[in-house]
Nucleic acid binder design. Structure first.
Length: 489
RNA sequence: GGCGCAUUCGUCUAGGGGUUUAGGACACCUCCCUCUCAAGGAGGAGAUCACCGGUUCGAAUCCGGUAUGCGCUACCA
């Protein structure tokens, strides 16, 4: 019987929820759900200086938005808590003390200034930077002196000087590191907080984590962790390093490349189902052709083995396309409900709030297949909501027409429209389509002119549908106003 | 500088010795549909599989080297 799958997403609350981290969480969640295991959320708040207020909430907000529910962690508890590292400090101190007494770690009294100078010197001499182990073999007397000076020491790991550590990464295969390339890293900081290395090993072990899934950038520190597992007598988990998400210049995706917080995507009108699908496909693939996968298909088919080894550039273009696909698949009601907040926010303040749901519901089918993000909805439908249209009057004169023919076209249209009782798509077409012929115009010319009159734009949803939703009164009003504009041209 | 890793169309990727004239998707171009824009349909263009050598009857696929890129190299994660 194999051990149950227990994976954890362990963000540090030092900022917004970066899509790269969220994608790691997705992989964690996908594996847990695929294998019937547990997905654990653990907050690694061990950096007091970089801690950002509200970051934990933002991270949880992002996970919830995507539907990545966690089985253990903040808000839900669990048998391996607490799930904030700041509440587990005793555990790390115990481990550090144990390591020191075993001779696997030692107190270091070097000042930050000295370390900095040392590093600068090493770089100048083109030596690999790293702690020079000055405090590794301090005598009892020397230590007592330092203590007497009131220096609070850090605890460093006593890295073996020789030998090597190797591990078999599920994605990268076997990786080997020589111990002489690893320095004596800090385990416990002078403020009493652990470093990532210590906390991560202690907790992953205590929480019985089966797979450590994290970004490729951690691969270099994995031997340190393995050394710690060994010194502490813990059984190491399976390591799974995945490639990073890159910006267009192939460097690690960062703020200067554009939106990096998952919450920004929500604000920009992307659907959570799009983000889940897109992020999953950034580094993972099912086969040679499947692009659109539902949450269920994803959890059913997910496997670590199919995660690639090369960094993937975040392609906003493809994201937009995919969002369009998901938007088009929404039921009308669902689409309306999701678009509503974006309309409330995006429409001009002159539009009376709250918006009429019924009216909005009539408009939405006209644009649903035309938008790629929810933020576009307001701009595309504005003319349905505002009173006076603002546009360049010359637009009323469509190609190969002149002022005179345009006036005539709108004039006659108006006359034909007045008696139309049922202002629906069919009736409108029945009246207007023959009219173009009658006027000796192409359908495109007449409809184009009417489109501008009625919507104020050259690009809009189909004319008859639009007019029908707008209603007879408003259409006639707008045609009249267009006529006024034409005459004073 | 050291260590580690990677390298298939512009981008995401499939493919793991012969079935590959290297498949799909986004983007791009053409055409069809059509009242504009979308959506949809049909085509097209786009990759000497980083380079050099080796193994083999045969290499995108295996091996070595080179180049380039990226990551790590904190009392940050």
């Amino acid at each position: 019987m194999t051990k149950p799958v227990r994976v954890r997403f362990a963000p540090s609350p030092t900022g917004y929820p970066h899509v790269g981290n969220i994608r790691t969480a997705l992989f964690d969640w996908l594996l847990a759900r695929h294998a019937g295991g547990s997905f654990i959320l653990r907050v690694e708040d061990t950096d007091v200086a970089r801690r950002v207020e509200g970051a934990v909430e933002a991270i949880m907000d992002g996970l919830k938005w995507l539907g990545l529910d966690w089985d253990e962690g903040p808000e839900v508890g669990g048998n391996y808590g607490p799930y904030f590292q700041s509440q587990r400090l005793e555990l790390y101190r115990d481990a550090a003390r144990r390591l020191v007494s075993q001779g696997d770690a030692y107190y270091c009294y070097c000042s930050p200034q000295r370390l900095e100078e040392m590093r600068a010197e090493q770089v100048r001499q083109k030596q690999p930077p790293g702690y020079d182990r000055r405090c590794r073999n301090l005598t009892e007397l020397e230590r007592a002196q330092k203590e007497a000076e009131g220096i609070t020491p850090v605890v460093r790991f006593k890295t073996p000087l020789e030998g090597q550590t190797r591990f078999n990464d599920l994605i990268w295969g076997e990786v080997v590191f020589e111990h002489n390339t690893i320095d004596d890293f800090v385990l416990l900081k002078s403020d009493g907080y652990p470093t990532y290395h210590l906390a991560n090993v202690v907790d992953d072990s205590a929480m019985k984590i089966s797979h450590v899934i994290r970004a490729e950038e951690w691969i270099s520190s994995t031997p340190r962790h393995l050394l710690l597992y060994q010194a502490l007598g813990f059984e190491p988990p399976q390591f799974v390093h995945h490639p990073m998400i890159l910006g267009p210049d192939r460097s690690k995706l960062s703020k200067r490349h554009g939106a990096v917080s998952i919450l920004e995507y929500r604000e920009q009108g992307y659907l959570p189902e799009t983000m889940v699908n897109f992020l999953a496909l950034l580094g993972w693939s099912l086969d040679d052709k499947t692009e659109i996968l539902s949450r269920k298909e994803l959890t059913d088919n997910f496997s670590l083995e199919r995660i690639g080894r090369t960094g993937a550039i975040f392609d906003w273009n493809k994201l937009s396309w995919m969002n369009g696909v998901y938007i088009r698949r929404l039921s009308l009601e669902d689409f309306t409900q999701r678009a509503l907040p974006f309309l409330e926010k995006g429409l001009p303040s002159s539009v009376k709030r709250p918006l009429s749901i019924d009216y909005t519901r009539q408009i939405m089918p006209l644009i649903q297949e035309r938008v790629r993000t929810l933020t576009e909805v307001a701009g595309l439908t504005e003319f349905f909501f505002i009173d006076g249209l603002d546009y360049d009057s010359s637009l009323l004169i469509v190609k190969k027409m002149n002022q005179e023919s345009a006036v005539k076209a709108l004039e006659v249209s108006k006359q034909k429209l007045v008696p139309v009782e049922a202002f629906d798509t069919g009736s409108l077409e029945a009246v207007l389509r023959p009219l173009a012929v009658e006027l000796g115009l192409k359908a495109g010319q007449l409809f184009g002119s009417l489109r501008v009159a009625v919507t104020g734009r050259t690009v809009a949803p189909p004319l008859f549908e639009t007019m029908s939703v707008l209603g007879k009164e408003r259409c006639l009003e707008r045609v009249e106003s267009a006529l006024g504009r034409l005459r004073s041209l």
